[in-house]
């Protein structure tokens, strides 16, 4: 089945890959140092954010460039729930999920009245509004932000190394959960509606699909998990601040880069894209602004050359290899 959501034909493959990576990644903290784990935690967080952006844009055709609003809001919610309301840090983290889901409802209600390009711009504007509001909230440190209290941070591990391990496992668990959830959604009845809507909205409507209901579901799922990821990111960075927590560059621009380079509308796409992005960042960040220019050029080149991203290139290369092999055998 070529229409599958991974690069390969078999539906069992995504789950096999998922299982294998769990087997490798879970025991990893026993073998590597804190720096590597922090690095991987970052990778898992951006990979999850990229998966969620791909769920919206790649699978659902809903192009938002304001998803950083939810990452930031989740971070601030986590800070508020722990610091101001004095709730248990674990409970607070869990509560950022329903918080993000609830927050996405009014946001979607506003944005769903706008068409494609306006939707995208509207989402960006709303995210900026969120950031400005966060900077004005009393008790959140204004424009320069505020650090988490040590006892909240220590709830996730008394020593630095145990904390790094725990946050590593937490972010990996979220990534696995997000991917598993996307696979589940794609193979559910809603998944069929979603793909139909993406391919041809008018025909889908005539066949009983309510595009707004499908988009709302995607928006709520992604809003909830982005908010949770924002909370994890806050724990990782130990603080909230408007420009960092609501960073357009980190949580939207780079994320779009990853999905476009890796391959939109495929689960493997954001995984490839995020790994490539992190590698490029490590190797090019010494060159200053040139690094951004290279990233931008790579994304534009990919869009012109193969809009399906690396995932499609790999798929094509495999097909070609299989054909050559067939010819050689014949």
């Amino acid at each position: 089945m070529t229409g599958d959501i991974m690069t390969s034909g078999s539906q069992k493959l995504p789950l096999a890959v998922l299982g294998l990576s769990v087997a490798v990644m879970v025991p990893l903290p026993f073998f590597v140092d804190n720096g590597t784990m922090r690095y991987l935690t970052d990778l898992f967080i951006i990979m999850s954010v990229a998966q969620l952006w791909n769920l919206l844009a790649g699978f659902g055709g809903v192009v938002s460039i304001g998803q950083h609003a939810f990452v930031g809001a989740g971070g601030y919610a986590f800070f508020g729930l722990t610091t101001h309301l004095g709730l248990n840090p674990f409970l607070s983290m869990a509560l950022t999920l329903p918080f993000g889901a609830l927050l996405s409802l009014p946001v979607f209600a506003i944005l769903s009245r706008m068409r494609v390009a306006y939707f995208a711009i509207g989402s960006w504007v709303l995210a900026e509004v969120f950031m400005l509001v966060a900077g004005k909230l009393p008790g959140f440190g204004g424009g320069s932000g505020i650090s988490l209290r040590p006892q909240i941070v220590k709830a996730f591990g008394a020593s630095t190394s145990s904390r790094v391990e725990n946050i590593y496992w937490l972010s990996f668990a979220i990534l696995v959960l997000v991917i598993f959830l996307i696979i589940l959604v794609m193979h559910s009845r809603r998944g069929y509606s979603l793909r139909a809507m993406r391919d041809n909205e008018t025909a889908a409507m005539a066949l009983g699909v309510n595009p707004n209901a499908v988009k709302a579901m995607l928006f709520v799922v992604s809003g909830a998990f982005l908010s949770l990821l924002g909370a994890v990111n806050t724990l990782q960075k130990l603080r909230v601040n408007p420009s960092g927590s609501f960073s357009l560059t980190d949580w939207t621009v780079f994320i779009i880069f990853m999905v476009v380079i890796g391959g939109m509308g495929r689960i493997i796409g954001p995984i490839i894209g995020a790994v490539l992005f992190v590698l490029l960042r490590e190797n090019l960040s010494g060159y200053g602004p040139i690094y951004m220019i290279i990233l931008g050029a790579a994304a534009i080149g990919m869009m012109l050359f193969e809009p399906g991203g690396i995932a499609v290139l790999v798929q094509r290369w495999k097909l070609k290899k299989a054909k050559t092999q067939e010819l050689e055998e014949a």
Partner: peptide
């Protein structure tokens, strides 16, 4: 014709059965 191009032929028909007729998968 307005097919759902990136879905298989069977999946195209399944959309009609699930969204249109409310059947389980």
């Amino acid at each position: 014709p307005q097919p759902f191009g990136d879905m298989t032929v069977a999946e195209n028909v399944i959309v009609g059965c699930t969204s249109g007729a409310g059947l389980s998968l």
